[in-house]
């Protein structure tokens, strides 16, 4: 089992889910990638790298999902 701290909350994932990519994490959470900015341990991960970026147990992930209006 692995734990990721997503937006300040610990989320557990079965060991076989790892290596879990940012794209796969968004899939697990049901979030549309086109409207998300992701930071892993305080570093921005560009959207085009979501499928290539693997997350490790214990990492801190901030996902900011934008909604329209301005």
């Amino acid at each position: 089992m692995g734990v990721l701290r997503v937006n300040g909350q610990d989320k557990e994932f079965a060991a076989e889910k790892f290596p879990l990519t940012v794209a796969a994490l968004l899939g697990e959470l049901g979030v549309e990638a086109a409207t998300v900015v992701a930071e892993v341990d305080g570093q921005i991960v560009e959207r085009e790298k979501f499928t290539a970026t693997e997350l490790r147990n214990g990492q801190r992930i901030e996902l900011v999902r934008f909604v329209p209006g301005g």
Binding site: A34, T35, V36, I44, E46, R47, R65, F66, P68, G70
Partner: peptide, 18 residues
């Protein structure tokens, strides 16, 4: 960031941070 669409908001926040 003062855009209206979610995609444009995503684009500029990502561009400025990266």
């Amino acid at each position: 960031e003062c855009f209206d669409t979610a995609e444009a908001k995503q684009m500029i926040v990502e561009a400025v941070l990266s």
